[in-house]
Simulated scan of single mutants.
Amino acid sequence: MKLGFIVNPIAGMGGRVGLKGTDGKEVLMKAIELGAVPESPNKAKKALEVLKSVKDEIKLFTGPGPMGEDEALELGFNLQVIGEAKENYTSRDTEIIAERMVDEGVDLLLFAGGDGTARNIYNVVGDKIPVIGIPAGVKIHSGVYANHPSSAGKVALKYIQGEDLNLKEMEVMDIDEEAFREGQVTAKLYGYMKVPFEPELVQNQKSGGIAGEEAALDGISDKIIEQMEEDVVYIIGSGTSTRPIMEKLGLTNTLLGVDIIKNKKLLASDANEKEILKHIDGNKAKIIVTIIGGQGYIFGRGNQQISAEVIKRVGKENIIIIASKQKLLSLEGRPLLVDTGDDEVNKMFNGYMKVRTSYTEEAIHKVKGL
């Protein structure tokens, strides 16, 4: 079995610092200036660790240095490096390496990144070979990704061991990052890639809003505002479900970012992790988040600014989840998901949590830390 393994070493760096992606050299430099650190190497390693039990049964092809070689060597894999080592790598390097892996006849391509990386892989791979994505980016709308880094490894393991997994055509989606930073989501379907499909391990494509939610969200926002406590810092997560809260308070809302309020006044707009930590230091705080429709994530997708460290300081008991009944129903019984990158924090969420679904009602829903 020939396995391809590619890591986008800069994927996800824009999340905690509030940049909503790292497409483009200028944005990457800004992320580094703000203190961003690489996220994808550790996530890629979590996927590859699952395959250690079969490392003698596979031939691993990987990119040079931080594009996969470093992680594979650390875990003791025998490998063949494709591409030349260099100081900086670009999206074109991803495409070149993926193309050469196709030429080498790899049976499955495992790659770490976000929607931009999926696009790069799709540009040269198309439907020629099966792929599975390791979620490591800020933007993950595409259906080609597993729901957690270790899940990607589990899918690959099942495929390597010959389990009868259907190859399902899954969407490669991406959005315009510049428009995204201005609060506009312009998603585009670029094509489909074949994914060994395991429903419990592979994520769904993000679904859009459902008609009829407006009245429910109106009631939810009224209840949230009514219950707000004095001198408590409220961290308002991203999304259209939290927007009515800010609108009713007459405050500027960052649709795709995180805002901070106290005593119903705005403390910070589009805050990054450091700003959030600064404002909650020495203060009681609460987090208000919603659910990504169709996928079920409450943390770890599009709101990485609310990091594991922020969650630990705030406390699980001070997290308020809001969503319409329609959005919960769109999950078809699947649990809400948490993927903060910190196993201890993820496990903290295992169990059940309340979800505010209207002015008068709450639902109890299962939550799973990945």
Rank of each mutant, 00 (worst) to 15 (best):
N78I: 00
L108M: 01
G137P: 07
A136Y: 06
N120R: 13
Y122E: 07
D127G: 13
V102W: 03
T117V: 13
H148M: 07
H148A: 15
A118L: 09
N123W: 03
V131Q: 11
A98V: 12
D107M: 00
G116H: 05
I129A: 07
E99D: 15
N120W: 03
T90Q: 04
V125D: 06
K128A: 13
I121H: 05
V102P: 07
G126S: 08
V138M: 02
I121V: 15
S142M: 01
D115N: 08
V125N: 04
E104S: 08
V125M: 06
D107L: 00
I140W: 06
E99H: 12
I129Q: 04
V144Y: 00
V102D: 02
R100H: 09
I129G: 08
A112C: 09
R100P: 00
H141D: 05
H148N: 11
N123G: 07
M101K: 03
D103V: 05
E84H: 00
R100S: 08
Y89T: 11
S142Q: 00
I82E: 07
K128N: 03
E95M: 15
F111N: 03
A112N: 04
A118C: 11
D107C: 01
I121W: 06
P135Y: 12
I82A: 08
E99S: 15
V131D: 12
G113P: 11
K139A: 10
G116Y: 04
G116D: 13
Y122Q: 10
A85W: 13
G116S: 13
G137C: 09
R119L: 12
G116T: 14
A85F: 12
N123E: 13
V106I: 15
V138S: 13
T90A: 03
